[in-house]
Structures are given as C-alpha cells and as structure tokens.
Design a protein around this nucleic acid. Structure first.
Length: 275
DNA sequence: AGTTAAACCTGGTTGC
DNA sequence: TGCAACCAGGTTTAAC
C-alpha cells in the first residue's frame, strides 16, 4: 500500500478540489474489506468538507445528506484514489465512485484490501474502533524521543515488527520501516526493548526524515500507486535497501540482505545495521 | 498478555 | 508454452 506518504499525497490531491462539492451519486463495485454500512443513495446531496488523514486512513466529512457523517477510507495494499472531472465507465478494479459536482472520486483497488466505511464521526464506531489501535502521528510535536523510547521499551518483539505495528508511531509500512532502520543503522531483528534512548531518538528522526523525503517525491510506486491526478511516486528509485537484495550497500558496499520477519520481507545491510 | 500465523484477494514474475 | 509456486505497499482475527 500506500503507506503514510502515499496516503498524504492522495489527501493533498483531493482536499482542495473536493471542498464544498455536492454528492450527486455513489456507486459500489465488488465488496471491499468491510461493507459501506449505509445505502449508497443516502450519501446524495451531502456536502464534502475538509479531507483529513489519520495514519493510513482518510476521512471525508459529509454533511447535509440523509445523515451527517463521513467516509473512512483505506487504500489497503493496492488501492489508489483518482479525482477526474469526467470519469469513464468503471473498470473491473474500480470498486467505489463518489460522483460530485466537482468531479468523480474513484477508488481503484485490484486486491480489495482497501475499505470505504461510513461513520457518524471519527469519534463514533466503526471509525473509532478502527482508529483506536493507532499510535501517535510521526509529525506530532507531542511525540518526543522519550515517548518513542518508552513505547519501544514496552515491546520485546523485533524493532522492525514494532515499527510495522504502528504502536510507537504510525505511518511506516514495509518500505519506510526498512529505510528508517537503515538510516538509523539499527538491525531490524534487534528487540525493541533493547534499544537505548539515544538510538531510539535517532530512529524516530530517521522515520520522520524518510517519510518527509517520500512525501516530497510523491510517495513510492511499486506497481499500483498513483496520486489523485494519476501520477506515480518516485521514492522507490531512492530507496537504499528496500527491494535491493544482492545489490551493494550504498554506504559500505556489502550486499543488501533479505530476511523474512512475520511473513514480511525485510531488506537491510548486515554490516551497517548493528544489533 | 504478548507474539506469531492465517486470512482476506488479484495479478505479475519466476522456475520447472 | 503451460502451469505451479511464490511474491507484493496492510491490518484484523484467530491461534499458540
């Protein structure tokens, strides 16, 4: 998926254009991860508010329809959202259309791990339940190195798995977790609770740097991701370790290694990243 | 309680 | 060429 940078790039592409748009029609394709929860017709006549992001979720406020509320959206592994003035007929992987006075917002998601769920507000279920497990936002100034270190101290699992869990900080998925650990020179298999306070501070900074750089480059496109205007991301060309097994490490020249952690591939440099 | 595997689904790539 | 096996950006749920 879409990790935090890709979701934020998407949010930035749809927020201003959709603001104040009136919903004319909504269409569902094949089932996504969870049911919408309301009849698509009940979204008609609603007005779109400011699009927000929490972790890898997007929140589209809708007021003045059958009921005030909004749509909580997730792009899963292969999803992307496109906003077009005129959308063509839906293809086999187009599973949600929100037709508005400002264009059609279309979710394309071949694997259908994504979701579009209606909720009365972010504080109400099902949104509240889905967001309840999320840790702090990476760019929240309230997330200090001490907070981050304390969160790592609570877990005995490998630091890579803890990053993916989003418990200490949200937003880093498989690509950016690998990249941040490389930047911080920390071995992915190191137990989270064995990380010193200085190394935790360095890791938090690395997560922030990597996510910020990815944001500037429009995210990563391995196969499916496109921003709201159909543009691919470029971070994958700048990745130091992700997807580069066998290639020489850009820092020391040793071959980048690949290992499996919890069914997910981890890429790292065994020479640069220390336990 | 806390960590790990299985599940959801499609399609592209690799290997026999 | 054909087909099976494996791999892919995530996260919940069930099982040790």
């Amino acid at each position: 998926m879409p990790e935090l940078p890709e979701v934020e790039v998407t949010r930035r592409g749809i927020d201003a254009p959709l603001r104040g748009a009136q919903v004319l029609h909504a269409r569902l394709g094949k089932p996504l991860r969870w049911p919408l929860g309301v009849a698509p017709d009940s979204l008609r006549h609603a007005t779109v508010g400011a699009v927000a992001r929490r972790g890898k979720y997007l929140w589209l406020p809708l007021r003045g329809g059958a009921r005030d509320g909004g749509l909580l959206m997730h792009l899963g592994m292969s999803g992307s959202l496109a906003l077009a003035a005129q959308a063509g007929p839906p293809g086999p992987h187009d599973h949600f259309d929100l037709v508005t006075t400002h264009g059609t917002l279309r979710l394309t998601d071949p694997r259908r791990f994504g979701a579009v769920v209606w909720a009365p507000s972010l504080a109400d279920d099902p949104a509240a339940r889905l967001l309840s497990t999320l840790g702090p936002e990476p760019f929240d100034v309230a997330l200090t190195a001490d907070c981050f270190h304390a969160a790592l101290q609570r877990r005995r699992a490998p630091v890579k798995a803890v990053l993916l869990s989003g418990e200490a900080v949200v937003g880093a998925g498989n690509i950016y977790a690998c990249e941040a650990l490389f930047a911080a020179a920390i071995h992915p298999a190191l137990r989270a609770d064995r990380i010193s306070r200085p190394r935790a501070a360095r890791l938090l900074q690395a997560v922030r740097d990597v996510l910020a750089q990815a944001l500037e480059l429009g995210g990563s496109t391995l196969r499916d991701f496109r921003d709201a205007h159909g543009i691919s991301g470029a971070f994958q060309t700048q990745a130091r370790v992700y997807g580069r097994a066998g290639e020489p490490c850009g820092r020391c020249g040793a071959p980048i290694r690949r290992l499996l952690q919890g069914q997910r591939a981890t890429y790292f440099c065994a020479h640069c990243q220390k336990r």
